[in-house]
Amino acid sequence: MALRELSPAEARVLAVLVEKQHTVPDTYPLSLNSLVAGCNQKSARDPVMNLSEAEVLRALDELKSLSLVVESSGSRVSRYEHNFPRGAGVPSQSAALLATLMLRGPQTAAELRANSERLHRFADISSVEAFLQELAEREPVRVVRLPRAPGAREQRWMHLLCGPVDASVAAGVPAAASSAAAGAGEVAALAERQAQLEAEVGELRALVERLYQELGVSRA
């Protein structure tokens, strides 16, 4: 069965489960509290998210219905583990790359090799590129190679599990850079408006001064 597009919350929950299976095996499968903390951690995440327990639980329910997550029973605290490779029909190496893309956003093959090392140790960059190419050529397509960003030496890859990549990412502009550019535009607009208001105030002051003089009234 082909997977539907995942929501950002579902993708984050799934990727955290893949990550923590390898990085904290002693506490895996994860409790809800640990999963929420993993979803919202500030390091090694792009974008940084702030999911509530309710949002994570909704994502878990959806992922369970897609056979991507399994809930463990038999303990006082419910625990969750992923079934990503089997549910998505990909090998564990590809699952490691997809999880890293879901956690950290667009990356080059070299960055993916370094960032996914704890999930799977690839022999070299060529091995990473081979798995990425397979994911890009299969049906449904799981990853896309993005246009080279201005000034960049290598092209980046992005997963398609949440649907088509948005225009700013497709253009090779990281989300942070896109936000920074938008912020700079807003600041420039505010500065222009401030200058306009200051000019209008100056004109009003000159008009008031002229009226005082014409009426022969002294200012208190």
Rank of each mutant, 00 (worst) to 15 (best):
A2I: 15
R4M: 10
L6G: 03
S7M: 11
P8Q: 06
E10M: 10
R12M: 04
L14N: 11
A15F: 06
A15P: 01
V16T: 07
V18E: 13
E19R: 10
Q21E: 12
H22W: 10
D26H: 10
T27G: 01
T27C: 02
Y28D: 02
Y28P: 05
L30E: 14
L30K: 04
L32W: 11
L32Y: 05
N33P: 01
V36D: 06
G38K: 04
S43I: 11
D46V: 10
V48K: 08
M49Q: 09
N50Q: 14
N50T: 12
L51F: 07
L51D: 03
E53K: 13
E55H: 04
E55T: 14
V56S: 03
R58C: 04
R58T: 11
L60T: 07
L63Y: 03
S65V: 04
L66V: 09
S67D: 15
L68K: 14
V69L: 07
V70R: 14
E71Y: 06
S72R: 06
S73P: 02
S78W: 03
R79C: 12
Y80K: 06
E81L: 15
N83M: 13
N83E: 15
N83K: 15
V90F: 03
P91D: 15
S92N: 11
S92C: 05
Q93E: 13
Q93C: 12
S94D: 08
L98M: 05
L101P: 05
L101F: 04
L103C: 00
R104S: 13
G105I: 07
T108W: 04
T108I: 06
A109P: 00
R113F: 00
A114Q: 11
A114V: 07
N115G: 01
N115R: 13
E117S: 15
L119H: 03
R121C: 02
R121V: 08
F122W: 02
A123P: 00
A123G: 05
A123R: 13
I125L: 05
E129L: 07
E129V: 09
F131D: 04
Q133G: 12
E137S: 12
R138S: 12
R142V: 01
V143C: 02
R145H: 01
R145D: 01
R145F: 02
R148G: 02
P150Y: 08
G151L: 05
R153P: 02
E154R: 13
Q155A: 14
Q155N: 13
M158D: 12
H159D: 14
L160W: 02
C162A: 12
P164K: 05
A167L: 09
A170S: 11
V173Q: 13
P174T: 06
A176T: 12
S178W: 11
A180L: 12
A181I: 13
A182M: 04
G183V: 06
G185A: 05
V187C: 09
L190F: 11
L190K: 09
A191M: 08
A191I: 01
E192W: 00
R193N: 03
R193L: 09
R193T: 08
Q194N: 10
Q194E: 06
A195S: 15
Q196K: 10
L197R: 10
E198Y: 01
A199C: 03
V208Y: 00
L211M: 14
L211N: 02
Q213G: 00
E214T: 07
V217A: 11
R219P: 01
R219D: 00
